[in-house]
Structures are given as structure tokens and as C-alpha cells.
């Protein structure tokens, strides 16, 4: 049941070299730089996003994800969800408005999987970048690189998938869109959605808590994914795998790494869901096909290389 969580709003990623990271996300992925702060953090957004930022690059000596934030519909919802988190047994931390420039107060919590998440209701509305609100053109002419359309989702690796499911579904109002079950019927992967999208956040079972697999950005077409692959080669960017198609979600995809080793995905297509859809299930014995639909073979790097 919906609880007022609206959509993925931002992800803060730790990077070893801020300028190298900026060049990667701005010039290759095609995000727009929107701000910087006194901590040295760099704020970016994809051009179709209406709020000020969706990606924050945080200079650090250890790459990985600091947190992922979801926007909720209003302040009353934020107040209610804080109570619901506490009632469930999940401690929360209050982050004051303005700690991220242009973002209202945030409620921060750590999921049983070890990942830090945030909820917030307000962020500066800057509108779509490069197009007018009235009579908008189809797209801005001066986009760079892959011309990412939006920040779409993240995939997390960690343990306690069942408790994490309970928190996201029963407290935050996500639903299970797709899953992988092992031979005992235990869920080893869960793709959770808060919208009609195939996933807004996903978790895969892993013995170490709090690991980051990738942040994903949406592209419109398969041709855009192939063009992204060209750009990855042109810039000698570290590639992981693709272009290919996933069995899970059926998205068409390519994976690569930022200069600090954080994995990125750009993808197009994929399944959609409505509330009357049942979860899609894959058996773990078909995991190769579930992850890489064409090769039908697991790639060790995709499963074990994390930040």
C-alpha cells in the first residue's frame, strides 16, 4: 500500500578525485552541474529532472555510496513515516534543511542491509534543464555525452534481505516487482518499486553489509545505449559488461565504472507494473539468464566487484 514515498530523489557517492569524477558524470554521462558546497561536494542532475540535484559527489579516500534519498509527497508524510520507522524499530537521524544545498530536512535511517537511506519532502524546484516550462522543445541542444535522461535507481548488495523487504514494503510502501528465489525458496534478490517502473531500488544477497553495486541512469532508446558504448570506448572508460539485455526487468543495458571504481549503468526499456501485477520470479538456477539474458552466463566481476 502506498505510504507517500514518491520517487528516488538523490544518491551521494564517494569519489577519490572530485574533478575526475565531475568530468565522468558531466562530460560522459551527460549530467548537468548545478552547485557545489563548502565540503567540496559537487551537485548534478539529469536534464529532465525538475529538482535541483539528484547526484552528489563527495570527495573521500574510500569510494562507495553514502546514502540514497527518496522524495515523499509532503511534510505531513515525512512526519508520519518517521513515526512509522521508529515504531518498526528503525532509529532515525534528523539532517537539517540546507545540509545539502537546496534540500529540505531529511530523515535518515540505516536499512537492515546496512545501507543508509533518507526521506525528504522539499527540494528546490529548478525545472527541467534547458527547456522552457511553457511550450517546451523536445530536448536541449547542448547536452553532453550519453545525455542521461534521469537518475533511475540503485542496486545494493547486503544481507538481511527479508527484514529489508519488510521495512521497504510494510513501512515505506514499496512493492515487490521481481525476485530471485534459491532452491529453498529463500529470496536472494529483490527488486522493489514505488511507481510503475521495474525497480526504484534493488537488493542482492551478499554477506557484507552496505555494499554499493551501481547507480543507474535512464536513456530513451537502444540506439542511445549503443551510443553510450561508443562513448565508453572513445573515452577509454573502464567497461564492465554490455551492451546486453537483462532477464530481470528485461532492460537493455551497459555497465561501466566511474574513475573511483563506482559502477554505473545506463539502460533503456524494461518492464512496467501496475498494482494488479504479481511479482516476477526467477529461479536461482537460471541466474545467468536472469542477469545477462543473451550470454546466459554469470560474470564473476558483476557479482563480486563492489564499492
Amino acid at each position: 500500500m502506498r505510504k507517500g514515498v514518491m520517487r528516488p530523489g538523490h544518491v551521494q557517492i564517494r569519489v577519490l578525485d572530485a574533478e575526475a569524477a565531475l568530468k565522468h558524470y558531466r562530460d560522459l554521462v551527460g549530467l548537468i552541474e548545478t552547485d557545489r558546497d563548502e565540503q567540496g561536494r559537487i551537485y548534478l542532475k539529469a536534464w529532465t529532472e525538475v529538482d535541483k540535484f539528484s547526484l552528489v559527489l563527495n570527495p573521500s579516500d574510500e569510494p562507495g555510496m553514502d546514502f540514497m534519498g527518496f522524495k515523499v509527497v509532503d511534510e505531513a508524510t515525512l512526519v508520519q513515516l518517521e513515526q512509522d520507522l521508529l515504531a518498526w524499530g528503525c532509529p532515525v537521524e534528523h539532517i537539517p534543511a540546507g545540509e545539502l544545498r537546496g534540500c529540505g530536512r531529511r530523515i535518515r535511517f540505516v536499512a537492515p542491509s546496512g545501507h543508509t537511506f533518507e526521506l525528504y519532502a522539499e527540494k528546490e524546484y529548478t525545472g527541467k534543464w534547458g527547456v522552457t516550462e511553457v511550450n517546451p522543445e523536445a530536448w536541449p541542444m547542448d547536452l553532453k555525452g550519453m545525455r542521461a535522461v534521469r537518475f533511475d535507481h540503485c542496486l545494493m548488495y547486503g544481507d538481511e534481505l527479508a527484514a529489508t523487504y519488510d521495512l521497504f514494503v510494510n513501512v515505506l510502501g514499496f512493492y515487490l516487482a521481481e525476485q530471485v528465489l534459491d532452491e529453498n525458496g529463500d529470496r536472494i534478490a529483490q527488486f522493489l518499486s514505488i511507481s510503475t517502473k521495474a525497480h526504484d531500488v534493488a537488493f542482492i544477497m551478499h554477506p557484507e553489509k552496505g555494499k554499493f553495486h551501481h547507480a543507474s541512469f535512464f536513456l530513451e532508446t537502444w540506439e542511445d545505449v549503443l551510443r553510450a558504448a561508443d562513448l565508453i570506448s572513445m573515452t577509454d572508460t573502464s567497461i564492465d559488461i554490455g551492451p546486453t539485455r537483462h532477464g530481470l526487468t528485461h532492460g537493455k543495458t551497459i555497465y561501466f565504472f566511474d574513475p573511483s571504481g563506482n559502477r554505473n549503468e545506463v539502460f533503456c526499456g524494461g518492464d512496467y507494473n501496475y498494482p494488479d501485477h504479481k511479482p516476477v520470479t526467477w529461479a536461482a538456477e537460471q541466474l545467468g539468464k536472469a542477469i545477462f539474458y543473451h550470454d546466459r552466463q554469470l560474470n564473476e566481476r558483476f557479482l563480486t566487484v563492489l564499492t
Partner: peptide, 12 residues
């Protein structure tokens, strides 16, 4: 040597 992220991040 196994090839991971190539960016000093994953440790592989």
C-alpha cells in the same frame, strides 16, 4: 591479475 573496476575502488 583479476580485473575489477580499474579505478582503485574494489580492491580485486
Amino acid at each position: 591479475i583479476p580485473v575489477g573496476c580499474r579505478g582503485g575502488g574494489c580492491g580485486l
